[in-house]
Amino acid sequence: MKELSLNILDIAENSVKAGAALVQILLTQRQDTLTITIADNGCGMTPEVLRSVTDPFYTTRTTRKVGLGLPLLKLAAEQTGGSVRLTSRPAGEDPENHGTEVTALFHTNHIDCPPMGDVSATLMTLIQGHPETDFLYRHERPGKPVELDTRRLREVLGSDVPLNSFEVLQWIEEYLREQYQTDQTNQENREETET
């Protein structure tokens, strides 16, 4: 994977496949670290499966449940001196509160830290392919956090217009772009006042 946004897309697809109604994608950017959390309320995994999912050689084609996605994320994080943490509650054990949470920590000043890439394109792809699933995206960074909650959009759109209608997708793309841009402009303004 060339960009972290592609790892995010890949892991979030697992959440959708696990039958999640809501997938939360949370990014926290600090001075030298970036934490990416993907949390879902899907079917979850048993402790046995959970132990094996980051091992690319454990699963076989006929029985595989996850594949190469998590090993690739783990590799990317560990290459920067970071790590991946996985927790999961299977639906069979806890019918009220089940799901999986993947947290990856990256040291952003490490030379092997991949670029973030186009995270808006990742969200567009997820929403386009899974209009019935809800996504909560929140990127905490210096300045104002960037946020998108498809549950709020759904309230406005009602049941008439699916989230993956082209006009809605265009609106979402622009909505995210503006949030990232406003933040940048503010920062530039601040820098100017400082000098």
Binding site: D160, E167, W171
Partner: peptide, 9 residues
């Protein structure tokens, strides 16, 4: 977004 809904339904 509400306008889009009106236009598209």
């Amino acid at each position: 977004l509400a306008e889009i809904r009106e236009r598209m339904k």
